[in-house]
Write a protein that binds this DNA or RNA. Structure first.
Lengths: 216, 216
DNA sequence: GGAACTGGAAAGCCCATGGCTCTTATCAAT
DNA sequence: ATTGATAAGAGCCATGGGCTTTCCAGTTCC
């Protein structure tokens, strides 16, 4: 005779984790899910399965899936930003080295990663319909551009401020375009070729003749 | 007393269209749907509602939603390519004008269109999980790069072939990056600024000193 | 010219999955 | 031992895609 009485199905044991651990687990699961399955394949059940928790927890810690995705966007953006800053910090004191390290970091892990692009694309795809996502995008892009602008002016103080802004936008665009295509289809050109193009563009920006700061 | 007998609900009238008309209507509806609602909001019912047909027709003309999205990708890609070629054809005979027209076309309608980007992003998001989409992407990107390469060499025949390839990749990356950000958030810089950057990059590519074709 | 025929088109159906809620079980701290 | 927050899991309702059935507009044949 079985010991367990019918009608009282045993429930899975669980460990009680802190809110931070749970949130982080859900965020990382969301990033993985977006990367591997895209927006369409990202659902409450899949995310929670990835995180190893039950489906109910998502709503408990976040205001629904959209809020979790937004939190994931912020988290991923911060991690990428941190990786870039680390690269700059490790580059030493020379301003040109620091600038180059910043640009170069886009073509090294963890930034150059098809999974990261896949996650990023998911955010882009929500940009149009989700104002909070759009705001986060603007914030992230602005931060990158500003950082690059600062590094540019430190490496070439003679560049007028408006020129530095344009140069930062142009360099960012080129880096983004190369990064995008490399992640989408790495067979069209190599990382080395991309680095060569970016280096040439950087050299051009740093050395092109200006007439703003001295003449006028 | 009502004239209509119970149990015989009247069915919507319909007009019989040719297969081409129906396919095109579904493709255009899909593009609109992807643009306005993103991948997540693109379903059989929504597409067919946009196209003004019943839900069953999608399966009748295409092998499911995925096949329709792929067909939409091909169609949109062809339309963009045609618009670019038209711009080149209207530019006249001067090779430099033709090259510039090609680059410039990326920042004019119908290419510079947030809806087009939204559609495009949807395709990117499927790139990882859908081999057919990935193949179409490679084809489209390769076609653009080759076309640009040809225009480059016509405008500057002294450029060695490998250099032209790299220049085409770099210019494409820059254009793509600027186009992407302009469509995502048009408040960060203007179309004129983007055109200025691209023009400067083009001039640099065309006029930079080479040592390949004459010396060696 | 009328009636059967063909195949395009519309609804409805089925089952799976969507997000979210609610109840209940479990754990850790008091 | 008690308690209150935390987690699990079932359940609800809406929507998903694909399929089937029913219906209708041209076509064809007599």
């Amino acid at each position: 005779m079985e010991q367990k009485i019918e009608g009282r199905p045993e429930r899975a044991r669980f460990v009680r984790e802190s809110a931070d651990v749970r949130r982080q687990a859900l965020i990382e699961a969301t990033a993985r899910c977006l990367a591997e399955k895209g927006v369409g394949g990202t659902s409450v059940r899949v995310i929670c399965a990835y995180a190893g928790v039950s489906a109910g927890l998502l709503t408990h810690y976040f205001d629904g899936v959209d809020a979790l995705i937004l939190a994931t966007y912020r988290d991923v953006g911060e991690k990428v930003g941190a990786a870039m800053e680390r690269a700059v910090a490790e580059a030493g004191p020379d301003p040109r080295d620091r600038l180059w390290a910043y640009l170069r970091a886009n073509f090294q892990p963890p930034v150059l990663d098809p999974n990261l692009l896949a996650t990023w694309i998911s955010f882009w795809s929500l940009n149009k319909t989700n104002p909070a996502i759009a705001a986060t995008h603007a914030e992230t892009y602005g931060s990158v551009r500003e950082h690059l602008e600062v590094l540019l002016r430190e490496a070439a103080p003679q560049i007028p401020r408006p020129d530095a802004r344009i140069a930062a936008i142009g360099l960012t665009a080129m880096v983004d375009g190369l990064w995008l295509e490399l992640c989408l289809d790495s067979s069209t050109f190599t990382i080395q070729e991309a680095l060569g193009m970016v280096e040439e563009a950087m050299n051009y920006v740093l050395s092109k003749p200006r007439n703003g700061s001295i003449d006028q």
